[in-house]
Simulated scan of single mutants.
Amino acid sequence: MDQFHDIRPYNDDEVAGVLENLVNTPDFIDTIVGFKFAKWPKWTRGMLAVLVKRVLRKEVGKISDVRSFQMQVASYMERMIKTTTTDVEYRGIEKLAKNEGYLFLSNHRDIAMDPAFVNYGLYLNGLDTVRIAIGDNLLRRPFVSDLMRLNKSFIVKRSANGIREMMAAFGQLSDYITHSLTQEHSNIWIAQKEGRAKDGLDQTDPAIIKMFFMSQKKQKIAFPEAMKHLKIVPVSISYEYDPCAFDKAKELHQKSTTGAYEKAEFEDIDSIRKGIVGRKGKVIVTFGDVIDDNCDTPDAMVAEVDRQIIGHYAIQSTNQAAARLLKGEPAGDQVFERYMAECPDELRETVLTMYANPLLQQQERGLN
């Protein structure tokens, strides 16, 4: 029996059936039409849907397994990099060995692009792409779940109700991650905490580390040894510009002034779209060192992950300019000044703090 059938990515023999179902899903076709032809008159939508379906059917006919699907994704990634970034740099990737399964524990700024940039770097360097942890809160539309699982995503059941159901979900997730890494030698990507670090402060949630341990704890394996089995590699992803910065600031500002923030139904999907098509400037992905020290407790592991993620974060000109502006000094960056001129006045300090925090974290820890 496949104990992970409801959370794992799709297997090669499932790809053709899932793609056929997607092509025949009106919600999926309508979403593509709305995205690519947003400015076209509404009366053209029906004709465009027929054309999109015809083109997609031709495209998916070339895809027979997960690898060929990801090769198609890579071509879209290359196009996106050309149009939305000025440069993408990878640091520390030469330390990774082929045919090893690593647990990439990453800071989290963008829902889709964080694992996508990690994946692209691995692909360019001849390493196996990652299995991506994705919360079920992002999968409210079935076609989104199908697309993600085709791209080697596995599901984190955040919507589990009650302690018993939640512990069962965490146990299954821990078993799947351990099985992927130690039995199948597959790479895993997972964020260091639930949700994006909207304030620019990168901090690991101890619950993530405790979840990793659950599977091996049942086998009476000591915590330090269990962590070594997982080959945890902290990853720091740095964007010169965050396409969702003003939206994140709006949420933070509303929470601070009213105490609450209510997400729109498909707000996360819109954030994914903005993250893909929005301006990013320079992107730097830094792979840290495998944590094989004797971290005896979850708190010790959290401290080491945070030290590496914060210390390896590549400080950009925007981080430096924001820190200067917060101190009342000239930005020293005309491009960033023009960018901030577009920011609503009530969000200005929140946005500046968001950009400055990675630098401030390094300074507070003496890591820069």
Rank of each mutant, 00 (worst) to 15 (best):
V66W: 02
P41K: 03
D27H: 09
P26S: 03
N11F: 12
M71S: 15
F37A: 01
Y10M: 00
P9D: 05
W40I: 09
K39H: 12
K36E: 13
V73H: 08
M77P: 04
M71N: 15
K58H: 13
S75Y: 09
N11H: 14
I29K: 01
V33E: 01
K58P: 05
V50E: 12
W40A: 14
P9K: 04
I63H: 02
F37K: 02
L51I: 15
G61S: 10
S64Q: 12
I29W: 00
L48D: 05
V52Y: 01
N11Q: 14
E59L: 12
D27V: 13
F35I: 14
L48A: 09
I32L: 11
L56K: 03
L56H: 04
P41S: 05
N24Y: 09
Y10P: 00
V60H: 01
P41H: 00
V52W: 02
L51Y: 12
I29G: 01
I63N: 04
T25N: 14
M47S: 14
A74T: 12
S75V: 14
L22M: 07
S68F: 01
T25H: 05
A49G: 11
F28S: 00
V33K: 04
Y10E: 04
V73I: 13
V33G: 03
F69L: 02
D27Q: 12
D13I: 03
Q72P: 05
I29D: 05
L56N: 06
G61W: 04
S68L: 01
K36G: 14
E14I: 00
M77R: 04
D30N: 15
K42L: 10
V23F: 05
D65Q: 06
A16T: 10
A38F: 12
F35R: 14
E78M: 06
F35Q: 13
R54P: 08
S68M: 02
L51Q: 10
E59Q: 15
S75F: 11
D65M: 06
R54D: 15
A38Y: 13
S64V: 10
V23P: 09
V66E: 07
F69R: 00
S75G: 08
L56A: 06
R57T: 14
T31L: 08
D12I: 03
V23S: 09
K39D: 15
V52F: 08
